[in-house]
């Protein structure tokens, strides 16, 4: 057997791996935030746009959900320069990941908006809200509750999908692991450490996600379903009604 604990522990705290993990985190966050913006815009265009806007949104979603992210990244970084569009590694990685994510999020956001009761729109209109005000103050905050759980899953996926940016030499966790592997050929040790880093990041995110979900569930939570007062009132009413 050719397993080395000393290399394993060395890689655990290796500066290159820590840097890579940090890059993975910010690359994921930035791509997710931009993807969310793109997703909201695409969802709005698809739901409320005229025919041209709808068509553009549908084409975008179809294109980026229908092709591998790996090909998208390679085309953006190594293909676009042929058309005179030159993006550096970081720009390419963020653009590719955000465009890909936005296409998936658009459908999640659309479903979230559709889950909001129609009466909410009536109520918002009856107090004189414009379309934007209704969206921003009433519909989207409620859609968020439905959107958050799948959104969390998407971010979980994003943390790992960033590893594909290694093929365009983005120096994140995977790429840095590859570089270390090529120096000392301790392949199993270094990739296991990389895998552990991803597990750690995903686990931390899961803990955060639980809190975010709880926050948005608060107004709707099961504890809030029936208040003590409402329960008392109900008991009173039953008493008043007398024996059936």
């Amino acid at each position: 057997m050719n397993w080395s604990w000393s290399y394993f522990f060395e890689y655990l705290t290796n500066g290159l791996m820590v840097e890579g993990a940090w890059t993975t985190i910010w690359l994921s966050v930035v791509s997710m935030v931009l993807g969310l913006g793109l997703g909201v815009i695409a969802a709005m265009m698809k739901m409320y746009g005229n025919r041209a806007l709808r068509w553009i949104a549908e084409f975008y979603i179809w294109l980026f959900r229908g092709t591998p992210i790996l090909i998208q990244l390679v085309i953006i970084y190594t293909g676009l320069p042929q058309l005179g569009i030159r993006l550096n590694v970081i720009e390419s990685a963020i653009l590719g990941l955000a465009l890909n994510e936005g296409a998936y999020l658009a459908e999640i956001i659309r479903a979230g908006i559709m889950s909001v009761d129609k009466g909410q729109n009536d109520a918002a209109r009856s107090v004189g809200m414009t379309w934007r005000e209704r969206m921003w103050l009433v519909i989207l905050p409620q859609a968020t509750r439905t959107i958050i759980p799948p959104l969390g899953n998407q971010f979980n996926g994003m943390l790992k999908t960033t590893s594909l940016a290694s093929v365009i030499s983005m120096e994140e966790l995977m790429r840095n692991a590859q570089m270390l592997a090529q120096i000392e050929f301790r392949v199993l040790e270094v990739y296991l450490v990389a895998a552990l880093w991803y597990l750690l990041l995903v686990s931390i995110w899961s803990a955060i996600q639980v809190r975010i979900e709880a926050h948005y569930e608060k107004p709707f939570g099961p504890a809030a379903a029936v208040s003590p007062e409402a329960e008392k009132e109900l008991a009173k009413a039953i008493e008043k009604a007398g024996p059936a």
Partner: peptide, 24 residues
Amino acid sequence: DAQVARQQRDLGMVFQNFNLFPHI
């Protein structure tokens, strides 16, 4: 949209299903 919203402010409406904003 905006002008209709402006008109609607002068009328109050109460619905069968209340339609309170549940998130606030």
